[in-house]
Design a protein around this nucleic acid. Structure first.
Length: 761
DNA sequence: GACAGAGGGTTTTTT
DNA sequence: ACCCTCTGTC
């Protein structure tokens, strides 16, 4: 990064821009955060814009926190306090608490997380008597959320949406139950906000409040978020969006990269700035990344460059299997530590979590401190959810999901029969479970003993609710844990797991205390509402690390981070790009490519990419060939090697290793100018037709496995044999620049394959 | 109501 | 291979 006061020309242009739409393409490592913070500081200091009139929106709390932190250094803490910096969801929640009543949203609404949402769907499906096997709650919820992300309700389905009436019914019930519970999901936060903005009075009030709006990671916005931004800046168009279409990796959760690509169309006259100078990585890494992203179609034209030195070459390492891979990654980390590297500067990436275990075992065996990013989040743990369910129920008695969660937790003799009857009783009176509890003596279907136990719960909740008026939030939680017997039940359990749960609860109490301290410092009265809001919109608590550790994470988790040493593992076809059960389209493939680009651009200086010949995953062996993305790396600045464990290279090529590593035969003689593996096709020209890439892929896989040219005539109906797919039948003969066929292979389906990789069966 | 065993499903993650 | 969920038994 250049020194702290200097900005390069495009950076300076983005910073100095004040009014009208501004689109900033921020390449990886191009000093984006710096530009954003300088720009906000400039608006305040030079242009005299009041901080409370500036809204900066991010996607994660972490990004919002970082932005605030950086701004504090630039503009001072009192300025930052007045700025609106937050995630889409947090910002909407904040505004909806103030103005939501206009659209029928009570002030104390709860935000249901994915688990809660699933519980609502499950209940809806049961009430509709729908088979959970045919309609898995998970999948129904997914379909519902997809619709909501596009801004559609159950009565606004499009023709292309599902034909399934049952899902629509479930959707309708889901929405009704959310409304009855005074709860919203994450999509509602955005959707309600858009609806509010569409109302004259309230909408104008909010619009007038913010004169300058900034959106970070704009390529991650979904349809509704984009609509929200447009509605918000409708009158003044003072909107600055920052992002990188090459780093769009969240299509599968609704993000639409076209939002950034078409911004210019929707905001005519927008100023466009491209930040292309990379300050993070070595020349070899920047050019390696460029090689991988270049074949991506429809990119906004731009080219990352750097003045940094070339640095060491990128290494591509062929390994025998995942254990071999883990062993070499571990060895290299030990070497790096030996050479003085800080373990906090080392990261190991993989495509899917399932790859982490072997790496973890290897690191543990070598006594290397590591941390795994991902996995079960603090706020998703059962005991934390239970405790929070009590608190949420105290605050919003109508929240049935929370009532059902704690009604018999800890066990208090309220079994499924009683619960079913209570639910039916509440349903017959069209009221919430809590209301039903209030008049439980009138429930004729419920046995006297059960009524008594339910009455006990009602009284308990009443007592705790009264506490809420007088006690601090943390005291309410402690009181709840004691009075409900939750803590006692765990103490009695006396297992290591119960101990861990108790610790988590203690941690939760600590989190509330932190919140209380912060609230008081900010001049606010700590409240249960305030705390619960924070929790709902935060996925995890930041864990402070005392000791530097190696970081293990998925490539998705790595976005936005950078490391001196990056190990990118599992770069095989079907692992990365990942091959899922369902067939994936060209767009999914392009997202995989962008994901690979993201991975590479995380590295500052050292990048080691590994692939294996065989890998155990999900209980099966996958035979791997190097990822097509490896084939897209430039020849220069990349060296290919293999471990001694790799068997498929003839022995004569294996030279004396410097210890464990072999240079690949084709890169032995030369260093920098070594051609990449002969199995790797030259990078396809960006203009290559889509079909060409597909053929490349086949070429790639087969040649590596030592495929043979075909002999004899191949025509429709011919039986052919393919190295990878086995025996199949030719369905049609096509031209892909050279003879190719579409053939059906049992277990693989129809594949397009070059004829020279087939032999007659 | 606790627990064992079967069964199903497995990319990626935030809010 | 592994993990979560559901179901049936005691």
């Amino acid at each position: 990064m250049s020194s702290d006061v200097e900005l390069n020309t495009p950076q300076a242009e983005a910073v100095a821009h004040v009014n009208g739409p501004l689109l900033v393409f921020a390449g990886a490592g191009s000093g984006k955060t710096r530009v954003i913070t300088y720009r906000v500081a400039n608006l305040i200091a030079r242009e005299g814009i009041a901080p409370y009139r500036i809204l900066a929106v991010t996607f994660t709390n972490k990004a919002a926190g970082e932005m605030k932190h950086r701004l504090e250094g630039l503009a001072g803490a009192d300025v930052v306090r007045d700025l609106w910096v937050g995630t889409f969801h947090a910002t909407c929640a904040r505004l909806l608490r103030r103005h939501g009543e206009a659209i029928g949203l009570a002030r104390n609404f709860l935000i249901y997380d994915t688990q809660d949402q699933k519980a609502v769907v499950t209940r809806a499906l049961r009430e509709l008597d729908l088979d959970e096997r045919r309609y898995p709650p998970r999948s129904v919820l997914y379909q519902i959320l997809k619709e909501k992300q596009e801004g559609r309700g159950p009565d606004e389905m499009t023709a292309e949406s599902y034909v399934d009436d049952a899902v629509i019914k479930a959707f309708r019930r889901y929405e009704a139950q959310m409304r009855e519970a005074n709860a919203v999901d994450f999509e509602d936060l955005i959707g309600h906000m858009v609806r509010l903005l569409e109302r004259e009075t309230e909408g104008d009030a909010i619009r007038r409040r913010f004169t300058h709006v900034l959106v970070d990671e704009f390529q991650d916005t979904n349809a509704m978020q984009y609509r929200l931004v447009r509605a918000l800046v409708r009158d003044h168009q003072n909107v600055c969006v920052v992002g990188d279409d090459d780093q769009s990796i969240y299509r599968w959760r609704g993000a639409d990269v076209r939002n950034i690509r078409y911004f210019r169309r929707d905001f005519p006259g927008a100023t466009v700035v491209k930040l292309e100078q990379n300050y993070r990585s070595t020349g070899h890494i920047v050019r390696g990344a460029l090689g991988v992203i270049a074949p991506s179609p429809n990119r906004e034209p731009k080219e990352l460059w750097t003045e940094n030195e070339d640095g060491p070459p990128i290494e591509v390492l062929a390994c025998a299997d995942e254990r071999d891979e883990a062993a070499f990654v571990t060895r290299r980390i030990l070497d790096a530590r030996e050479a003085g590297s800080n373990l906090g500067e080392v990261a190991v990436f993989y495509r899917v979590h399932a790859q982490s275990r072997v790496l973890e075992e290897s690191l543990r065996a070598a006594n290397l401190a590591y941390q795994i990013v991902g996995g079960t989040k603090f706020y998703e743990r059962a005991e934390v959810k239970d405790a929070l369910a009590y608190l949420r129920l105290l605050m919003n008695p109508r929240s049935d999901v929370d009532m059902l969660r704690i009604i018999n937790t800890p066990a208090r003799g309220i079994g499924t029969t009683t619960i079913d009857r209570l639910v039916a009783f509440a349903g017959s009176r069209s009221e919430s479970l809590n209301d039903a509890l209030e008049s439980i003596d009138e429930a004729r279907d419920i046995a006297a003993a059960a009524q008594k136990r339910l009455g006990g719960l009602r009284n308990l909740l009443g007592d705790l609710r009264a506490r809420m008026e007088t006690d601090s939030p943390s005291d309410v939680l402690l009181e709840t844990l004691e009075r409900t017997g939750y803590r006692e039940a765990l103490r009695a359990d006396n297992t290591a797991e119960a101990d861990a749960r108790l610790e988590n609860l203690a941690e939760l109490v600590g989190t509330i205390r932190d919140y209380e301290t912060e609230a008081i410092a900010a001049g606010e009265k700590p409240s249960l509402e305030g705390f619960l809001e924070r929790v709902s919109l935060q996925a995890d608590v930041d864990s402070m690390r005392d000791e530097p550790r190696v970081t293990l994470m998925t490539v998705h988790g790595a976005k936005g981070l950078e490391f001196q040493h990056v190990f990118l593992t599992g770069m095989e076809e079907d692992m990365f790009p990942y091959k899922s059960m369902e067939d994936r389209g060209e767009e999914d493939m392009e997202e995989e490519r962008r994901l690979a680009y993201v991975a590479i651009t995380r590295a500052r200086r050292h990048l080691l990419i590994t692939h294996t010949s065989a890998r155990q995953i999900f209980g099966k062996t996958r035979w791997g060939t190097p990822s097509r993305f490896i084939g897209n790396l430039p020849r220069e600045g990349v060296v290919h090697k293999q471990t001694r464990g790799v068997k498929n290279t003839p022995q004569r090529f294996i030279d004396r290793p410097d210890r464990d590593l072999q240079p690949m035969p084709w890169s032995r003689r030369t260093s920098g100018l070594a051609p990449s593996a002969p199995s790797m096709p030259a990078r396809p020209a960006p203009s290559a037709p889509p079909g060409q890439r597909y053929v490349d892929r086949e070429f790639f896989q087969d040649d590596h496995g030592g495929g043979e040219g075909a002999s004899g005539p191949i025509r429709r109906g011919s039986r052919v044999h393919h190295q990878r797919f086995g025996e199949g039948e030719v369905r049609s003969v096509v031209n892909a620049g050279e003879p190719a066929v579409i053939a059906f292979f049992p277990g693989w389906g129809e594949k397009k394959v070059l004829a020279r990789f087939l032999r007659p069966a």
